[in-house]
């Protein structure tokens, strides 16, 4: 039950998720895995919003609403990103970031 768990447990979880996401974004070489790392980041934000709303401001719903919109927009973002990634796969035959390095300075 959520009642027994204090707020800072949620915050530690979301912070961990956020930085695991950032780490994965930097380290991973596969475009799909990078996209998954971004989903981790966005979901850590969702946990933050819901936990703050539930524990600190239970009389209103702003955090919950924000979460719903973040989920919806993350879906839109992922669909465009995957469309582009599929196109890259068709062109180059690979979705490894190290192979997609035509533009460099």
């Amino acid at each position: 039950m959520i009642e027994g768990i204090p707020l800072h447990y949620f915050l530690v979880l979301s912070t961990l998720m956020f930085f695991i996401g950032v780490y994965g974004f930097i380290v991973r070489k596969n475009l799909i895995t990078i996209l998954m790392s971004i989903e981790l980041i966005l979901n850590s934000v969702n946990i933050n919003f819901v936990a703050f709303n539930k524990f600190l401001y239970p009389d209103q719903l702003q955090g919950m609403f924000f979460t719903i919109f973040v989920v919806a927009i993350a879906a839109a973002e992922a669909s465009v990103a995957i469309a582009i990634i599929i196109n890259i796969y068709r062109r180059i035959g690979n979705i490894n970031v190290e192979e997609i390095a035509e533009l460099k300075h």
């Binding site: 971004i38 890259i88 062109r91 180059i92 997609i100």
Partner: peptide, 9 residues
């Protein structure tokens, strides 16, 4: 395509 993926990510 590369520009697009770099921008969206």
């Amino acid at each position: 395509a590369e520009a697009g993926v770099k921008l969206i990510l």
